Simulated scan of single mutants.
Amino acid sequence: MDYQKLSIKSWAVEDRPREKLIAKGITSLSNAELIAILIGSGNRNESAVELSKRILQSVDNNLNELGKQSIEYLQSNFKGIGEAKAISIVAALELGKRRKQSEIRVKPQVNSSNDVYELMHPILADLPHEEFWIITLNRANRVISTNKISQGGISGTVIDTRLIMKTALDQLASSIILCHNHPSGNINPSPQDKTITNKLKEAGKVMDIPVLDHIIVTDNGYYSFSDEGEV
């Protein structure tokens, strides 16, 4: 039996586009395999990958040229490509074009405790309850992401050290900053605030993801553990 005409489900797991993406990452897939994921299935004589290869061959394997083709072109020239599949291909290529045209936003750089306060004040200052967040940073101290970890009541919130470190690891963070609010307006840290800061500081040392600061946000000001020499 011709291997190329087998359905994708009968291929070895590592050769299936979706499974290959999960196992080896998006960059391991060819253009044909990416299109195959979009269309989902081929026709009676071709797998989705083989059909995708033929579509690409029709435009000399040039994605820019494929992006110029119409829904009608795809439907009329390729058996197994109906309106829905043609729309998926056209929409994906248009999205790629728009991504290329979009401006690359420079992520903010954290150089001081005030930078953190300015970043998190709009998120935390007016809340009637406590929330605990972490800011993940790259090697240049630019923000990768702000991440809400937990939400509690007026006087406190539960903090899971494992979840915090997992978030940092998943985002390949070089360092993190802890942040939470005090709805009462009191900027001074509680004994619990100091305990969790020390606990996460030690966990960060073990994971080689240092905790640079812990900021307590209120509507009228903030407390920085780093500025006070406590981190």
Score class of each variant (00 low, 15 high):
Y73Q: 02
Y73G: 10
E118I: 01
R105E: 15
L127R: 01
P108V: 13
L137F: 00
G67Q: 00
A84Q: 13
R98K: 12
Q75L: 06
K79T: 14
I123G: 07
P122N: 04
E130R: 04
A125Q: 06
E130Q: 09
S70T: 07
N77E: 15
G153F: 12
G153E: 08
S76Y: 04
I149T: 14
G82C: 14
D126R: 03
D115Y: 02
S150H: 06
S88F: 14
R139C: 07
G67W: 03
G153P: 12
T136Q: 04
A140G: 09
S150T: 08
G67H: 00
L137D: 11
S155D: 11
K85V: 07
L93P: 02
V90T: 02
R98W: 09
N77Y: 13
A91S: 14
L127I: 06
T136N: 08
L93G: 03
E130A: 05
D160G: 08
P108G: 10
M165S: 08
Q109K: 07
P128T: 14
R99E: 11
L66A: 01
S150W: 07
R105M: 13
E131D: 00
R99K: 11
G152S: 04
N111I: 03
L66R: 02
E83G: 13
L93Y: 06
G67N: 05
D115V: 04
E72C: 03
Q69S: 12
E72N: 04
V116L: 11
I135K: 09
A92F: 07
L95P: 05
N141F: 04
S70R: 10
I81T: 06
D160E: 06
K148L: 13
N138Y: 07
H129T: 15
T146Q: 15
N138M: 00
L66D: 01
A125F: 02
W133F: 14
M120V: 11
D115P: 10
L127G: 08
R139E: 10
L137S: 08
I149K: 13
H121M: 09
L119I: 01
K97Y: 13
I134Y: 00
A125E: 03
H121T: 05
N114L: 10
P108H: 00
I87G: 03
G156H: 13
H121S: 13
E130M: 05
I87A: 14
L66C: 00
T157P: 03
E131L: 01
K68Q: 12
Q101I: 06
E103D: 09
L93K: 01
A91N: 15
L119E: 14
V110K: 07
K68R: 09
H121I: 12
T161S: 13
I159K: 03
A140T: 00
I135Q: 12
L137P: 01
V158H: 03
F132Y: 07
R139N: 10
I71R: 02
E130H: 09
S155M: 14
Y73L: 03
L66G: 01
L66I: 10
K148E: 15
I154K: 11
I135Y: 06
S155V: 09
K107T: 08
K100W: 08
I134H: 00
Y117R: 00
N138F: 00
K100E: 14
K107I: 00
I154C: 02
I89K: 07
H121P: 11
M120L: 13
G156P: 05
K107R: 11
E83F: 12
